[in-house]
């Protein structure tokens, strides 16, 4: 490695060794934590938190500050859920709601993805519709229920309309911000390697926007689920079957507080389960593949 005035020149043979040495020194080191420790730090805290909430609830109930019909015991609610499971109704109720939410959500994804891409990539459309899409997110989807009932009557179409109106804007929004955050260099590289607009969207833009898109889908799911519950609570008719929302409304009509709380808990449980079992693993996989796993 003798240095000369024009920069140190390395002999061809030595060059390979130096390059290999540099690679070895500069390569980022990945530190892994054992899986059980990761599981422990991820599972234990939320379980403790849930137990704490139940303990406080039990204590409040035991203190008898409120009458039983306003605050039932945790055990009474557990009993109610147990009855639903034993009677077998729980499966049909869950199926009615969950399959509607999933169907509605998937339709929303199919509608929102091309729309979101178009709005994100066409400046004129972006200026015209962008603020509207963002604004629509702050409109509670319950507000659509009366309109949907007048349009479609008490049919499943009403429920799907409300779900779509709730989730399409948030998926579009996620995709738009995902596209905004794509480094311009990547799209430039796409053009430099000869990709046209469609190839570039498929091979560069969409994959690059995936983290934002996934976040949008996650939020879109939450909006689907919420909108569905709003629709089921208000639109109550034999034609629509009995979902979680209707169960909740029936419990209210029967003045059964433990029934109400059981239904609320089930709604919460479904929302959290889908998030934890579907979105979280997908998101973690995507972020980890890009070296961005710090957050999760």
């Amino acid at each position: 490695m003798a240095g000369t005035e024009t920069g140190s020149r390395v002999e061809p043979d030595g060059l390979a060794d130096v390059a290999a040495g540099l690679d070895a020194l500069d390569t980022p080191v990945e530190r892994g934590t054992p899986w059980w420790r990761a599981a422990l730090t991820r599972v234990v805290p939320p379980v403790v938190a849930v137990l704490a909430v139940v303990a406080v609830w039990q204590a409040l109930w035991a203190a008898a500050i409120w009458p039983e019909f306003k605050l039932p015991a945790p055990a009474a609610v557990g009993e109610h859920v147990g009855d639903l499971v034993r009677g077998g109704e729980i499966w049909s109720v869950l199926w009615v709601s969950v399959h509607r939410a999933i169907l509605g959500f998937l339709t929303a994804v199919i509608i929102a993805t091309p729309l979101g891409l178009l709005v994100a990539r066409l400046p004129l459309l972006r200026n015209a519709v962008g603020p509207l899409v963002t604004g629509l997110q702050s409109l509670p989807s319950v507000a659509w229920v009366p309109a949907a009932i007048l349009w479609f009557g008490l049919t499943p179409a009403t429920i799907y309309a409300v779900v779509l109106l709730g989730s399409v804007p948030s998926i579009m929004n996620g995709l738009m911000s995902g596209v905004d955050q794509v480094p311009p260099l990547l799209t430039r590289v796409g053009r430099a390697v000869g990709a046209g607009p469609f190839t570039s969207a498929r091979l560069v833009l969409l994959p690059a926007a995936l983290p934002g898109y996934l976040a949008g889908c996650k939020q879109g799911w939450a909006f689907s689920w919420r909108s569905l519950m709003a629709a089921e609570l208000i639109a109550n008719s034999p034609q629509l079957g009995v979902g979680l929302g209707q169960t909740l409304d029936q419990a209210r009509a029967l003045n059964s507080m433990s029934g109400v709380i059981a239904a609320i808990l089930l709604i919460l449980l479904v929302g959290i389960s889908i998030e934890l079992l579907v979105f979280r693993p997908v998101e973690r996989r995507v972020l980890r593949g890009r070296g961005l796993a710090g957050a999760l």
Binding site: L22, L25, R290
Partner: peptide, 10 residues
């Protein structure tokens, strides 16, 4: 290997 697993020169 993915880009984040490589050094700048690599």
């Amino acid at each position: 290997r993915r880009p984040h697993q490589l050094s700048g020169g690599m």
